[in-house]
Design a protein around this nucleic acid. Structure first.
Lengths: 225, 225
DNA sequence: AGTTCCATACTACCATACAAGTATGGTAGT
DNA sequence: ACTACCATACTTGTATGGTAGTATGGAACT
């Protein structure tokens, strides 16, 4: 029996990257937290080299800022970028769902059905975190069905900032049931090839599901820039 | 008198990154070229560490692919991603120019005027490369005027693939005069607040200015994936 | 008391040595 | 002649020592 991850026999460096990224987006490492190559190397029981590599990647995604000879810290949330990410996502998702109404593979539709069912269960369980992930998955499947997976990946990158504010937004107990209904109706519109209706829905959906920035900024002034 | 680049007193690592990126996008390093940490370290007279750092960053942008213990090579142009980049850019630029028609700072308008004048001169001089760069600058200014600089940066990243194919496309002697006219008319539409007209123009402009993929693939089959 | 200066303890950055996996060419065996 | 095998020369991944720039706290001076 081989190791299940036969593709990554040596993934020491990529591991700390993934872990750090997760913690940053989770806000487990809040914006402004000071990081240190040496210290994180100690924590993960690796040398400074893979840690440094992780910092470089995170810096390129704007999740950390590194000041030469001064230090590295988790980046503050840039509200300008959050707004831009919202804008970008709205434009692209509206275009994509129009494509979906024109043509969409049956298999992906079934996956969307399954996802919706899981959403229903998560709402019953009041599991906000899982609901958040299922919501992301739902939208990702839309892109995938239109063969726009790469586009979704690029969005994800900008979402580095947007998602952190959405995590904050979770605390305000969002109306998941409403969002679920949106998803449900959007899926129906796709099956009916109702592009105009689907686009309208998506627009409203995104405006609702994306956080009220000023309020969050007021509650967590030290997290923003 | 201080060094003009007071911000980057030590930029050894970032330098090789910039140089490599330039060469890859220029196709000076054609897709498929094998790179080696040790060899490039020799070329730039630095150690492997900053070279490796560059490779990591380039890999994250999809400009190189690194196979552990096997080697690193310049990535092939992924025609799927090129098409996606075209799609993405069309959606976002159409939305942005609509914003521009609503409101756009006067100063940026003047910069666009100046840029157009330079375009005219470049066409007279038959300087394709400069014209290419001025075209990029023109579109960037549009984003900047709408405070969507971050969005443009994200697009640039996906353009890693798109731009390389557009460099190939330069060889087919594109109709720069037509593109110049487009720019000119778009700028006029912005001043007249004619959003619908501007959006239509932008759509046609992008469809014309973005390369005919199948043809390029036929001429350079070994560059594509 | 208040201010200046410097030793010290940090930081990221770079060079180098070592480890581990992979492709390759030559050799021995059939 | 052909095949299997293994030494060797690559590759990237990791660890570590040393360098240079920066912040900080205490001592000496005004």
């Amino acid at each position: 029996m081989k190791d299940p991850q036969l593709k990554q026999p040596l993934a020491a460096g990529a591991l700390v990257y993934a872990s750090l990224k997760e913690q940053i987006v989770n806000l487990t490492l809040p914006p402004g937290t000071a990081l240190s190559e040496k210290e994180t190397a100690l924590q993960y029981q690796v040398s400074r080299t893979p840690v440094r590599e992780s910092f470089v990647r995170l810096a390129q995604e704007g999740l950390v800022v590194v000041l030469p000879q001064r230090g590295t810290r988790v980046s503050l949330i840039d509200s300008e970028l959050v707004e831009e990410a919202r804008f970008m996502r709205e434009q692209l998702e509206r275009a994509v769902i129009r494509l979906a109404c024109d043509r969409f593979p049956e298999e992906l539709l079934l996956q969307l059905d399954a996802n919706l069912e899981e959403q229903r269960l998560s709402i019953q369980k009041h599991d906000s975190k899982q609901m958040f992930e299922l919501d992301e998955e739902f939208h990702r499947l839309l892109f995938q069905g239109c063969r726009k997976q790469g586009t979704w990946n690029v969005i994800q990158q900008m979402n580095a900032h947007l998602n952190r504010s959405r995590i904050l937004w979770l605390a305000s107990d969002p109306d998941w049931l409403k969002l679920y209904e949106h998803h449900h109706t959007m899926l129906k519109a796709i099956r009916l090839h109702d592009a105009d209706g689907a686009e309208r829905l998506m627009q409203e959906h995104l405006r609702l599901s994306i956080s009220d920035l000023p309020k969050l900024k007021e509650q967590h002034p030290d997290f923003f820039r």
